[in-house]
Amino acid sequence: MTKLATMTLPQRLSEFTVGLLFGLGLILSGMTDPRKVLGFLDLAGDWDPSLALVMGGAIAVGVLAFALAKRRGSSLLGSPLHLPTNTRLDRRLILGSLAFGIGWGMAGLCPGPAMVSMAAGQGKALLFVLAMLAGMRLFDFLERQTQRRIKEN
């Protein structure tokens, strides 16, 4: 085994295990069931409050972990903390999140559950993921255009 591999192996294993745990959590919680997600978003119909418990359970654990991480200042496997530094409440944040919410309400799928559903062999989830990746690439393209315009002026 090379020196580099021995250095990064614990990190790779940790990332894989965390991804696996997150995916299993999505399945168990019901997030990968679009009918359940839409049942939660349908306040005016037969409302299924389950997803409020998903968020509640996740945040209850998360609050403790992030408080601890901030106090430590570095990660246990040695890499520095990569926490967001942007604090702007701007149009991009709000319009982007609104667009995401519309798509979420149309399909009942958000990025994580869509990936899990696709891996479980749901053909329609594959279509959704391809469209989502196209949307992400479109963002990259539009960002590059904007950067170029800023540079030219």
Binding site: G96, F100, A131, G135
Partner: peptide, 11 residues
């Protein structure tokens, strides 16, 4: 929906 989710989550 996929396009909106992709574009929206990045913005």
């Amino acid at each position: 929906a996929g396009l909106l989710v992709g574009l929206g989550t990045r913005y």
